[in-house]
Amino acid sequence: MMKQLEILVVDDDRDGADGLSEALDFYGHSVTTVYSGEEAVEAFRHSCFDVTFMDVMMLGLNGVESFLEIKKIEPDAKVYMMTGFSARDLLEEAVGHGAAGVFHKPFAIEDVLEKVIGSPVH
């Protein structure tokens, strides 16, 4: 039995965010969906998440900036970066600051589940 996780999905592409959220939800996880970096940071102020899927290229606070803010609130937050293309500098910065991994869009849900299930749950 797969452990139910508290998951935050952050993407300013609403279809992308909802698609991923619904799929994760289908597997029995508790998914919170937000559509900007600012909302994600705000969500961390009130809740705890086992896993966060963060889009990199977003208007306002981008994914990496949001990740860094979240790390200030929850230093052990497990955040996976999602990107449509190789924003190499941003990704390096995020991985350098402890991002859990990177998923390149359009990734397979199976890959996500495999990696996330195998990861320790906060």
């Binding site: 993407d11 698609g19 991923l20 289908f26 449509g84 869009k105 359009p106 990734f107 397979a108 849900i109």
Partner: peptide
């Protein structure tokens, strides 16, 4: 264009998966 295409592709892929 890639970014703009991959986002919808990601949405499609996850939706199709679902």
């Amino acid at each position: 264009v890639s970014h703009e295409l991959r986002n919808p592709l990601a949405a499609i892929r996850s939706s199709v998966h679902l």
